[in-house]
Amino acid sequence: MYNYKALTDNELFSLIQSGDKYAFEEIYDRFNGLLYIYACKLVSDREDARDIVQEIFVYLWSNPNIKIKSQLSSYLYTAVRYKVFDWLDKNKSKSNYLLSLGNFIEQGNCITEDYIREREFASIIEKEVSLLPAKMRQIFEMSRQQHLSQKEIAEILHLSDKTVKKQMSNALKVLRLKLTSFISLAVILLLR
């Protein structure tokens, strides 16, 4: 049986690699408090600092093939520093995700409400267009949905350009009159 307190860190580390639990406990006792203080200087949350140090010890115990080129203490402090970098990286990603989620929640409702209003408005416009007189509706739809010019519409329907222009003008007047009240109501609702 060894006197573990009398052994050097590197001797204890060699014993840990062969599975000596008492050597691990001695290393844990020697470094746990110091590594925790070091982690607390790098991370603001004490629980996170404790978790980081625990992960280092778990890794040390569960990986018997670790190669240490200098002192065990240097290895442990460096491991804590790198673990803190990983922790900061994960928390940055988490806070970026939370910020993004917060923005979506904040703006998502507006986007959804805007989309619903837009769909309702489009539905009202379609309804009003369907109520136009047949020839006027046909000309309006050819212009707005098929994106045909007045000249093209006149040629297809065998009408004069002037007639097509007059029918479009009348359709827009009728729609503007009927939709003005809806737009006014929508603006009032938006300003609330």
Score class of each variant (00 low, 15 high):
residue 47 E to P: 01
residue 43 V to L: 13
residue 16 I to Q: 07
residue 36 Y to M: 12
residue 22 Y to E: 09
residue 53 V to H: 02
residue 60 L to C: 12
residue 59 Y to C: 10
residue 18 S to H: 14
residue 45 D to V: 04
residue 31 F to D: 02
residue 22 Y to A: 10
residue 9 D to E: 14
residue 10 N to V: 04
residue 16 I to A: 06
residue 40 C to E: 02
residue 24 F to W: 08
residue 60 L to Y: 12
residue 63 N to C: 03
residue 65 N to P: 00
residue 33 G to P: 03
residue 10 N to W: 01
residue 68 I to W: 05
residue 23 A to D: 07
residue 42 L to S: 06
residue 67 K to F: 08
residue 69 K to G: 07
residue 25 E to F: 06
residue 17 Q to F: 12
residue 29 D to Q: 14
residue 11 E to L: 07
residue 66 I to R: 08
residue 16 I to W: 00
residue 53 V to N: 06
residue 50 R to C: 00
residue 61 W to R: 00
residue 15 L to W: 08
residue 53 V to D: 00
residue 18 S to Q: 15
residue 45 D to E: 14
residue 14 S to F: 02
residue 34 L to A: 07
residue 61 W to D: 03
residue 38 Y to V: 07
residue 25 E to K: 12
residue 42 L to H: 00
residue 58 V to P: 01
residue 66 I to L: 15
residue 15 L to G: 04
residue 16 I to H: 01
residue 48 D to P: 02
residue 30 R to Y: 03
residue 60 L to A: 10
residue 54 Q to E: 14
residue 33 G to K: 15
residue 59 Y to H: 14
residue 13 F to P: 00
residue 36 Y to N: 05
residue 62 S to T: 13
residue 67 K to G: 01
residue 59 Y to F: 15
residue 67 K to D: 11
residue 66 I to H: 04
residue 64 P to H: 13
residue 28 Y to G: 02
residue 31 F to T: 01
residue 32 N to C: 09
residue 37 I to C: 08
residue 64 P to Y: 11
residue 57 F to C: 08
residue 65 N to T: 05
residue 10 N to I: 08
residue 29 D to P: 00
residue 54 Q to S: 10
residue 35 L to G: 02
residue 28 Y to K: 10
residue 46 R to P: 14
residue 55 E to P: 01
residue 49 A to R: 01
residue 19 G to K: 09
residue 33 G to S: 14
residue 54 Q to N: 15
residue 46 R to A: 11
residue 69 K to L: 09
residue 13 F to N: 06
residue 17 Q to P: 02
residue 35 L to W: 02
residue 27 I to H: 04
residue 59 Y to I: 01
residue 30 R to P: 01
residue 55 E to F: 03
residue 49 A to M: 03
residue 26 E to Y: 05
residue 65 N to V: 05
residue 35 L to R: 03
residue 59 Y to N: 15
residue 65 N to M: 03
residue 37 I to F: 06
residue 25 E to I: 11
residue 15 L to N: 08
residue 10 N to S: 12
residue 63 N to D: 10
residue 22 Y to M: 09
residue 63 N to G: 05
residue 68 I to G: 05
residue 24 F to I: 13
residue 30 R to N: 11
residue 60 L to I: 13
residue 19 G to C: 08
residue 22 Y to S: 06
residue 18 S to A: 14
residue 59 Y to Q: 12
residue 10 N to M: 10
residue 14 S to G: 09
residue 21 K to N: 08
residue 61 W to S: 00
residue 25 E to L: 11
residue 52 I to Q: 02
residue 31 F to N: 07
residue 16 I to D: 00
residue 53 V to L: 03
residue 18 S to T: 15
residue 49 A to E: 10
residue 34 L to G: 02
residue 31 F to I: 04
residue 15 L to K: 03
residue 42 L to W: 04
residue 47 E to D: 13
residue 23 A to G: 04
residue 53 V to Y: 01
residue 69 K to W: 09
residue 36 Y to P: 01
residue 31 F to L: 00
residue 64 P to R: 15
residue 12 L to T: 05
residue 31 F to K: 03
residue 37 I to P: 03
residue 58 V to S: 07
residue 40 C to G: 04
residue 64 P to F: 09
residue 28 Y to L: 13
residue 65 N to S: 09
residue 39 A to T: 10
residue 27 I to G: 02
residue 21 K to H: 14
residue 67 K to H: 09
residue 47 E to G: 13
residue 20 D to S: 08
residue 69 K to E: 14
residue 57 F to D: 04
residue 47 E to N: 13
residue 61 W to F: 11
residue 58 V to K: 11
residue 19 G to H: 10
residue 20 D to K: 06
residue 42 L to Q: 11
